Simulated assay, not measured.
Amino acid sequence: MPKSIFWSRTDTAGSEQVLLDDGHGLAARGTLLAVDPIPWTARYQLTTTPDWATTRVEVEAEGLGWLRRVTLERAAGRWRVTTAEQGDLDAALVAAGHRRAGLPGTDDPDRLADALDVDLSGSPLFNTLPVHRLRMAAEPADVAHRITVAWVLLPGLEVVPAEQIYTGLGPGRVRFASGTFTADIDLDDSGYVVRYPGLAERIDPR
């Protein structure tokens, strides 16, 4: 993997590092750590087509006394979702005063049929996928794209369809919106997140 990016979380104690190759679409593997709602570590592997449509994402999340995995694979216009689980995440959440997590994966993959992108919650890398796939860098400002993504929620790895809107704001900036939430994200020349207000900032080597 010829490139490495590191982000520090700004919404909670945590970080993300990803190793990637974007010479022909994107191949990436990364690690996220966070303490909210309980301490957890997640590892992922991501593969796209040459035009940046996601074909496979594998995520493993782990904390004290539990481990979950989910794999999403897209072929012939449909998503296949498989899961595995060890231990009891819900017991850890309840013991820390939080509500239970949803089951990993989804009971109806057809709900994800319109999704060409996967979004892993808390990961700035995954915002790059629609930016590249939609070729937003070549567009004029204020062009809005309404898309559906397969949203993987951490740490429980529940997968749900989510509607998102990406709007270019000029070179190096895009507005992300989902429901009532909006954020103006700063990007580098390659379309990777430099600053995501309220979530993360990139840390570059000195």
Rank of each mutant, 00 (worst) to 15 (best):
Q17F: 08
G102D: 13
D186P: 01
A27R: 12
Y192C: 05
P50S: 01
W151H: 10
E58S: 15
L187K: 05
W40M: 04
A13V: 12
D119W: 00
T83F: 02
T54V: 15
T128V: 10
D114T: 08
A42E: 04
P171E: 13
P124E: 01
Q86G: 15
G63W: 05
A95Y: 07
R9M: 07
A101L: 00
R74V: 08
R100E: 10
D188V: 06
Q17R: 14
Y192D: 03
A75D: 13
R43E: 14
D107Y: 11
V159Y: 02
G105M: 09
I203Q: 09
G77M: 03
R80Y: 09
S178K: 09
G25V: 01
G172T: 08
P2M: 10
L134A: 08
A61K: 04
V35I: 11
T148L: 08
D142Q: 15
L129V: 06
M136N: 03
A13F: 10
A144R: 11
T180C: 07
L112D: 02
D142M: 15
A13R: 13
T12R: 15
T182E: 14
A115M: 08
G172I: 06
S15F: 12
A150F: 05
V57D: 06
A95W: 01
F126Y: 05
P2C: 00
G14I: 05
D189E: 14
A92T: 04
D186V: 11
T41F: 05
P197C: 06
V57N: 00
L20W: 02
E58T: 15
I165Y: 03
A84K: 10
L46W: 05
I5S: 09
G198W: 05
H98S: 11
R68I: 00
L67H: 15
W79P: 07
R111M: 11
D142K: 12
A177C: 08
I185T: 02
G172H: 09
Y166C: 09
P37I: 02
P171F: 11
G65T: 09
L157I: 06
G179H: 09
S8I: 07
A27Q: 12
R133N: 08
G198R: 06
D107E: 14
M136K: 00
T82C: 14
R29W: 09
G23T: 12
G87I: 02
G25L: 01
D36S: 13
T71F: 04
G63F: 03
G30L: 05
Y166D: 00
W79H: 07
R133L: 10
R195M: 04
S8E: 13
A183Y: 03
G23P: 05
L187C: 02
R56Q: 14
D90L: 05
L33H: 13
D204W: 06
D51G: 03
A162S: 13
E62I: 12
P205Y: 00
L33D: 11
P2W: 00
V59K: 08
E139A: 14
D204V: 13
S15C: 09
Y44K: 02
R173P: 06
R111I: 05
S190A: 13
D107V: 12
D51S: 09
T31L: 12
E163R: 10
V94T: 12
Q86W: 14
A162E: 12
S121A: 12
R69F: 11
V160M: 10
D186L: 10
E158T: 13
R111L: 15
H24R: 07
G87W: 06
G198V: 00
G25Q: 00
L125V: 03
W40N: 01
L67C: 15
W66D: 07
R99Y: 02
R29G: 09
L20D: 02
E16W: 05
L129W: 01
